[in-house]
Computed example of a mutant assay.
Amino acid sequence: MASISILELKPGIKLSKDVHTSLGGLLLHKGTVLLPRDLDILRAFMVQYVEVDAGEADARNGSKPPVQKSLMNEKAPTEQVIPSKSSTFHDEYDKLLLLVKSANQSVIAADLPIYELRNQLEATIVHIKEYNPLMFTPRSMNEYDYIYHNAVLCALSSYLLSKWSGLQQKDWMQAAFAGLFHDIGNTKVDPAILFKPQPLSAAESEEMRRHTTYGYQILKNVTAINEGVRLTALQHHEKVDGSGYPLRLDGSKIHVYAKIVGITDIFHAMTLNRIYRKSQSPYLVLEQIHSEAFGKLDPALVQIFIQKATEFHNGTVVRLSNDQVGEVVFTDRNNPTRPMVSVAGEIVNLVQQRHLYIDEVISSN
């Protein structure tokens, strides 16, 4: 067995060892006979060397290449974006946001910079333990950058939800890609419609809905993403009862990535400031998503998202809708968005006091 650089690989070579991503996900199985598309995938995932039979390496390259230790678990190549020890989640988030903004603004005239996007997405996910959908607030935000923040946040939340829901590890990054690119079709929508602060006309609404088919068309020839990512761009507004668009599919025909992004997109769309609507309490949004689970969204995925996102320890400091600050002292699993909160020595039961709700989480243990 010998290590061979992907620069020397040719279609037809058989792998003698599984190939993994830098995050540990299985990329290609041992015994895979490489096709041209596989070579594109290896490059997209920044794989530098793979293991092949020494004899096959000789036959393909004319001479035996020097045996080298695989770099899969070694220091990443210098061209790969790796967070420094002083790098923070916010730092990597901001870098990804700028890259997404640049890619969206040029995608009509140029290819999507998929390698750079994946590289920076992985660098951000290295810090995923620092991210909670209910607590994270971007350092800078304006309404015109909403679509870029929504893309990045949907990528991160979709990565978590795919992990929480028990999908295989190989799906986690693809689900993140699905979140990152779900609204890429908006790049082909007239900005006058996209950023219009007033209600859209029927014709404008119809054009806005075309962003789903535009997105699939943009992604159909992009390498390093799977068909589920492309289908998410097309299907993320479909509903499990068949009432969505553009194809009115029922739940059995909607890809799982699209079901995941359908949830995270609603959550972030309602908790971010937009030109025509101010952000809402994430807890109220979760309650609305819960109601949508009856016929519109996948109920199992909704339950997982709500339970995991609200999984705080007692002592979490929150601000209520009446501006009072208190600590969570008990959470009922049947009502995870409405815990008991201690405010100035008195217990406020949000299940009973429905007029109150948690407006924001200030700090968590």
Rank of each mutant, 00 (worst) to 15 (best):
S3N: 08
I4L: 14
K10Y: 05
K10F: 02
G12H: 03
G25M: 06
H29A: 12
T32K: 12
L34W: 01
P36I: 10
A44L: 07
V50R: 02
D58F: 06
N61V: 05
G62Q: 01
S63W: 07
T78M: 04
E79L: 12
Q80L: 13
Q80W: 05
K85W: 04
S87H: 03
H90F: 00
D91T: 11
L98T: 07
K101E: 12
S102C: 08
S102K: 13
I108V: 15
P113E: 03
N119P: 00
A123E: 04
A123M: 06
A123C: 01
I125L: 15
S140F: 10
Y146D: 05
N150M: 10
N150S: 15
N150D: 15
L153T: 09
S158R: 06
L160I: 00
W164K: 05
W172R: 05
W172F: 14
M173D: 06
G185R: 03
T187A: 15
D190P: 04
D190C: 08
I193V: 14
K196G: 02
Q198V: 11
E204S: 01
K220V: 08
N221F: 08
V222K: 06
T223C: 11
L231M: 14
L234G: 03
Q235T: 08
L247A: 14
R248L: 10
R248W: 09
K253C: 05
A258I: 04
T264V: 10
T264A: 11
F267H: 00
L272Q: 14
K278D: 13
Y283N: 00
Q288A: 10
G295L: 04
L297I: 03
D298I: 00
Q303K: 14
Q307T: 13
D323V: 04
Q324A: 13
R333M: 10
R333A: 15
R338M: 01
P339M: 01
S342E: 13
S342V: 01
G345P: 10
I347Y: 14
N349C: 04
H355F: 11
L356I: 13
V361W: 01
S363Y: 01
